[in-house]
Design a protein around this nucleic acid. Structure first.
Lengths: 371, 371
DNA sequence: ATGAAAGCGCTAACAG
DNA sequence: CTGTTAGCGCTTTCAT
């Protein structure tokens, strides 16, 4: 077969099937200019005549060259224009929670003005690997969202030496941290139901640690909770209970959920409402869990709020529609602030951590019968 | 000041403030082994003795070397393990829509098993630049979600020659495309209200094109709609109307919204319900728009469904809570499919586009009074 | 099991 | 306004 290999036939234009993708060098060679000039045509239009630039861009198109390779560019420039947002769980759960989505919205609101994009990263390592994929991620900085204090990913990210911002994580050292007033929010939720006369309470807890355990949490279990948000809210509930002169252990049963999903809240509520000291009020650490509790109450034929009162946390859109009393937090703002803080850090500024953002109890029909 | 510059004092461990970040070479030099061996310690543990590997990792830690630089690694390997998800709008809107979040959830569900991460990219260029940031994005492939047929980003992404998958975009050439049965879904929504006896209809349309126009859309305007989803759903509504022997122009008023937000749906419904031929049924191209319509009806003192019926599209969680009749689509599955298709493409397989995913009308109280 | 050599594709200085 | 020079930090044959 003599004709099988056309020996590098000239295929100047639309040579998409060329043996190799065209590079900046090829374009330079084709025009007899230097690579630097071609680079400038893309990165600094003002550094060369409009005419030459046009010729370069044209030849590039003909050669099937679409522009500087982002990876090579990143290596050379030492920047990727990407920030990694690290989420505690698998990514597919990050979007299940409206509050997480709203947070992301806040972050991108801060970054998109600068043309910086968001890389979503799960903190948990890929099953086959030993470390979180965040060590392989090309990014200029990280937003570490809602990780357990002892999450390996946290250490990895911080050790990497890139700028980082913590969100809903216990403040540590000099890393800028964004938090909300979890203790105060939880306390106000609890005070609210106590004021309504409830004396037997049930807590629907978010994850305590990374074990994905699900079940009642005794005093021991409540002792050292690595998840900051869970720990703080628990503290808040407790402080209200004790301030009311009640004994925490006997008045309040705590159930620990494995994930922030309505299904988990459903299970938790089912379990709590079946204990001998059946609570008359359920304090959920998230609206997602509270939604499950509302469903559980309905399935058990219990009236809300008469038979059982329910309070959530977050105030996602569905909360209003369902008449859920809840603790509102400025989730979007939290994200925006985290984004801004990281950008400042990237720019070399040394912003201090802001004060915890404040929360507000929103009273709706799930605790107080609509007038 | 003689003592100001300690002339390269030995700071072997925790030399975080060293003049330069340690590289793989430094680690190799410190141990007197070759860079290749250090590289292997990270990438191919089986290629060297456990003992040597441990020593390498230890020295690396002491030197403040946290592992191979992802960008350099990417350049050398020719892969980033990142796929870009391109969304029509600014990123901060991508998360405003629960359906978009659910879609993303589907995509990540497909990719996370392979340790591939998601880079979120807005199709619209940054105000100061002329092209979408997707040309600067280091990624191995793209999911192009819900772009207008004439969006420049679409051409750019496709021209880049990387594997790509289209979602909710008009199929073109050989690019794998995931769509749903938009026409059928819309038709079923419309048939439903026609069957209920409605004869004056209002359509709350998603974006027609990238102009962010808002207002009534006449026949001209309805002629060539670049947004695939809008075009198809319009076609679906119309086919039902005409199949019922009605005249489209006189029976149906179409309002075009500028964005997929409840506020837009509110404006649209307000406008439609104030026209002389006041519609008795509103067909919204998304649940988000429909939610706004429900609010508008309430504000106008109109009873739903008695005074005005409302049908949505998507079936997001809130739809059930609000009793919205809507067209359900498998949004999560759509994302998962898109992810799998792209991964297959990345692996060199040539999967054909799947058939459009099917939709189902879910009848609730916004069109039919609860029994 | 380990090392040497050769770039991946680009851009920042600086010189002309 | 344009070209020259010199790597960015890594991985991957192919030897040894």
């Amino acid at each position: 077969m003599p004709s099988s290999k056309p020996e590098a036939a000239e295929t100047p234009s639309t040579s998409l099937k060329g043996r190799r993708r065209a590079t900046l060098r090829d374009v330079a060679a084709a025009l007899g200019v230097s690579p630097a000039t071609v680079s400038n045509a893309y990165n600094r239009p003002d550094q060369l005549s409009a005419e030459l630039r046009a010729r370069i861009l044209d030849t590039a198109r003909d050669l099937g060259y679409w522009g500087p390779d982002p990876t090579a560019r990143g290596l050379r420039r030492g920047a990727t224009d990407v920030i990694g947002v690290v989420y505690a769980d698998r990514l597919s759960y990050a979007f299940a929670d409206p509050a997480a989505a709203l947070f992301l919205r806040g972050v991108s609101n801060a970054t998109e003005a600068l043309g910086i994009n968001l890389l979503l990263l799960p903190a948990a390592p890929h099953p086959d690997r030993e470390t979180s994929s965040l060590v392989h991620a090309a990014a200029d900085g990280f937003v570490l969202y809602s990780l357990a204090d002892d999450a390996p990913a946290l250490g990895l990210a911080l050790r990497r030496g890139l700028p980082a911002v913590l969100v809903d994580v216990a403040p540590r050292g000099d890393v800028p941290t964004v938090t909300i007033d979890d203790v105060g929010g939880a306390r106000s939720a609890c005070e609210h139901v106590l004021a309504l006369g409830h004396r037997a309470l049930g807590v629907l807890g978010l994850e305590f640690d990374r074990t994905r355990r699900r079940g009642l949490a005794n005093a021991d279990r409540q002792a050292d909770v690595p998840f900051f948000v869970t720990r703080e809210r628990l503290r808040g509930y407790r402080s209200a209970v004790e301030a009311a002169g009640l004994d925490w252990q006997t008045s309040t049963t705590v159930f620990e959920c494995a994930e922030n999903l309505p299904e988990e809240g459903y299970e938790a509520a089912m379990a709590l409402l079946s204990t001998e000291t059946r609570p008359t009020a359920l304090l959920a650490m998230s609206d997602q869990l509270a939604f499950g509790a509302l469903r559980a109450a309905a399935d058990l034929g219990l009236q809300v709020p008469n038979d059982v009162a329910v309070v959530g946390f977050d105030d996602v859109p569905l909360a209003e529609a369902l008449g859920l009393t809840t603790v509102a937090q400025p989730t979007f703002e939290k994200g925006r602030l985290a984004g801004k803080l990281l950008l400042a850090r990237l720019a070399g500024e040394e912003d201090a951590s802001p004060a915890p953002l404040s929360t507000t109890l929103i009273v709706r029909g799930s605790t107080v019968r609509a007038s």
